[in-house]
Write a protein that binds this DNA or RNA. Structure first.
Length: 220
DNA sequence: GCTGCGATTGACT
DNA sequence: GTCAATCGCAGCT
């Protein structure tokens, strides 16, 4: 049983404790459960340049400033949803990004939602893939993960800790550049095949499209 | 009002 | 390894 107080701490403290926890989503087409294998911590205003809440509260990040234990869902790259669990000490804004997991229940449903996945381990391998496998989008932003009646719920690890539990590893976060980049706030299970490949942040200022490329196309 | 870019992914070479 | 897809928001004018 996960209680609110477990999440009312700094996201960097909460994040490793969430590894192995189970996220379940119950949607119209069925229930899918995922065991978390990779997470990243994002702290609040001023403290963490990589966080959505770094600058100030906006309509888009309001959930991050709200009660801990709620789901923060954001839209990125014009097509992907990403899931976070709101966690912070009193009066701050913080969240743990759910980067990857292993589907432990409802695999056929997850597969139907992720037709591009060719292997089981790819069903929830990556933040947007995890959201897709669970069937979660922006309409579920702000739901209480600790409410029994919620469509998305957070449950403690189902297996008792044993010597065989995978070691937790840490490293710099994915896609975060600038002053906050070296902060080792990415946590994952060592050797887990569902952990997403780490991609270093792309340096800014180097145009990806050469000037010769004209975005206009002839009609056709 | 306009512009650039992002806590990404999948297809293609 | 490289690159296109696609849109809401922040920052600037």
């Amino acid at each position: 049983m996960i209680v609110r107080a477990d999440l009312a701490r700094h996201p960097a403290d909460v994040a490793p404790a969430l590894l192995g926890a189970v996220l379940t989503s119950t949607r119209e087409d069925g229930q899918v459960a995922v065991r978390l294998t990779e997470v990243e911590a994002y702290a609040g205003v001023g403290e963490d340049p990589g966080s959505h809440a770094h600058r100030r509260r906006t309509p888009g990040n309001t959930t991050m400033f709200g009660e801990v234990g709620h789901l923060y869902v954001y839209f990125t790259y014009g097509m992907h949803w990403c899931l976070n669990i709101v966690t912070h000490a009193d009066g701050l804004a913080g969240a743990v990004l759910l980067r990857a997991g292993a589907v432990i229940r409802g695999e056929p449903i997850a597969r139907s939602r992720r037709p591009a996945a060719t292997r089981d381990r790819d069903l929830a391998r990556g933040p947007a893939r995890l959201a897709a496998a669970l069937g979660v989008d922006g309409s579920l932003d702000g739901v209480d993960l600790l409410d029994l009646a919620s469509p998305v719920r957070l449950l403690p690890p189902q297996d008792a800790p044993t010597d065989a539990s995978p070691a937790i590893r840490t490293g710099p976060r994915t896609g975060v550049a600038g002053p906050g980049a070296p902060t080792p706030w990415r946590f994952w299970f060592d050797g887990e095949p569902t952990v997403s490949p780490h991609r270093p942040a792309q340096p800014r200022g180097t145009p990806r499209h050469p000037a010769a490329a004209d975005p206009r196309r002839p009609t056709g």
